[in-house]
Design a binder for these strands. Structure first.
Lengths: 338, 338
DNA sequence: GACTGGCACTCAGGTCGCGCGAGTGCCAGG
DNA sequence: CCTGGCACTCGCGCGACCTGAGTGCCAGTC
């Protein structure tokens, strides 16, 4: 029921609407896309497309705009991914040059993504789960408090504050030694197992202290360790154009809720290609006017996480998809090499 | 030339305008504030206040609104700092309970501040300059790269990636040992001095490697180490009310520029009390429609940094000042204890 | 059967004019 | 120095009007 011409028309409507931000009418469509039919024919086709729910009119006697369903069809079948421009490729390389550590890579990536897509960019910090532990350390800060520090093979460093009620330097050294013996070279999952019985491996007098240390390490390695994201490009929300209260504010609120962001990106981690969620396809209701384009990234199976962008449903999907894919791949390589 | 009644009127105009967001006229002023004079008298006084530049009218035959100069006078001489409500005090304590480490304290603080002031909150991470170095570490991640890690007495942990082109484990151990000898217990400033000649203290074969390590440590301790801020409460920008492009977007852009934020907060670090910058008093031109309320915070002279809020000039200054001051003091204590 | 030209219809948005009312400035009198 | 009174200003909201883009439908043509 949707012949070739109707699909062409839908594609034209989507591209025109994305670039002009205005409902597109039959006449303009014929002119701007060299369709060899009359506006009346286009109108008939548009009526069908509307019937099927791919497009809609904001009000009678206005042009048509795509619905979420229309965008979906466009993304799935009608768009050809736009290759990145030379300038964009160059931007990627220059931007990522000279990153200092994992945190810095993430910060640069998120800014890069915001810049080339002109949307709000979100990058999840790499998950440590499959990385191995390189180093553990217990550092005394003052008489009664200290830090437990974990370093993983991806170069991420995390720490937790613990109390040192009556631990001597010798206690610390011994516990640290035992901890290093058992954890270095293991993955987070293995480490969690080994930590379960950690306290009993040290002399009873030090068991309480050892248990506190083990708890801190478990906390570091726990699933919420990955619960960090970086955000950039918030000023790009101007692109929404619509009213602040109804569209921009919900997005801002979501951006402050790490949990929400992680859920938004969540399902992109598994699949290998770019995920696109359009409008109401997002579970999170306040973002029903926004689309998410996300992708997993990471060095082979070492460290994996997700990055993506958030923008209005009226978005240049081909470019966005290409950008997200390119950045994800590049960062993956960069993490593997660096 | 500004007698008592005129000041009272200015105060009334400020408070009314802040709460109603609408220009305030002479009649409403008399009614709502029990002034024992007629509207005509108030009008005469308002004419003087306008002449002097403390208030202005958006257009003829509208009420008056305060100018930046008016707010300034209000803040300096007319406002009594509002004590925090019980709920707010409770919010502070519950919010800060159970913080994990310095980063976590900062994150909680910024959210807390955004919540009780209903503005955008900014908290600078504590500066390490006067803190002392507790621990240094060199960790091998893979054959040819590693991390240099620094831990300070405030519990902050920072790291830099370095290459390990041909350093053996023995090289690493020796350099690490020498580094620890020279740096532990020193402040950042002292450490920088000692690092200048660090490379010559190790055998020539290791000098290049030692120099790289020294450079990494210097980078960690350098002034830009403090160049990190946390931001929260961005959705509160709704309070601006005015048009997105002209007022909200500049703020969003400033919020993404760490450098700008640090300069905004900068001058509050030195003084001991809360700093208030109103509208054009900000050097940064795009923020001429916004006010900044900031304060230094920190445990004694140990670690000091700045926190504050950004909002429209039409702001409840007494509450904002009280909140910023309270949070700054509380976090200072918290950092000292924890 | 598919396409086209023509035509009547709809309706958002801009413009104009008008009246209302809040608020002002000024002045004369207490 | 304060006050009541009065004329004046002007932003804002409302309704009327017009315009133009765009539509749906229908009869005619290939």
């Amino acid at each position: 029921m949707l012949d070739d011409r109707k699909l062409t028309i839908l594609r034209a409507i989507v591209t025109d609407y994305v670039s002009s931000r205005e409902p597109v009418g039959s006449k303009a469509l014929v002119e701007r896309h060299g369709l060899n039919v009359s506006p009346a024919t286009v109108r008939n086709d548009m009526a069908v497309l509307e019937e099927e729910g791919y497009i809609t009119q904001p009000h009678t006697s206005a042009g048509r705009i795509p619905t979420d369903k229309g965008y979906r069809l466009f993304v799935d079948r009608l768009s050809t991914v736009k290759p990145l421009s030379v300038a964009e490729r160059r931007a990627i390389t220059t931007f990522m040059m000279g990153a200092l550590d994992v945190d810095d890579i993430v910060r640069r990536t998120v800014q890069l993504l915001a810049q080339i897509t002109h949307q709000v960019a979100i990058v999840q910090y790499p998950v440590v789960s499959t990385a191995t532990i390189c180093h553990v350390e217990i550092v005394r800060l003052s008489a009664d408090r200290g830090l437990v520090i974990c370093v993983t093979s991806t170069g991420s460093v995390e720490q937790r504050l613990i109390g040192l009620p009556e631990a001597s330097d010798a206690d610390i050294a011994q516990v640290r030694g035992r901890l290093a013996e058992r954890l270095i070279g293991t993955t987070a999952v293995e480490a969690a197992h080994r930590l379960a019985s950690f306290a009993v491996t040290v002399p009873p007098a030090r068991a309480v202290f050892a248990a506190a240390v083990a708890a801190a390490v478990l906390d570091i390695l726990g699933p919420d360790a990955s619960a960090r994201v970086a955000v950039a490009g918030v000023p790009n929300l101007a692109r929404f154009g619509a009213s602040y209260e109804t569209t921009v504010k919900p997005v801002l609120e979501a951006l402050e809720e790490q949990v929400v962001l992680l859920r938004l990106l969540g399902e992109a981690t598994t699949g290998d290609d770019v995920m696109v969620r359009i409008g109401h396809e997002n579970d999170y209701a306040p973002l029903r006017a926004t689309s998410v384009v996300a992708s997993g990234y990471g060095s082979d199976a070492g460290s994996r996480a997700t990055l993506g962008i958030v923008g209005p449903t009226r978005m240049d999907y081909p470019s966005a998809i290409a950008s997200v894919r390119a950045v994800a791949r590049y960062v993956g390589r960069f993490l593997a090499e660096a």
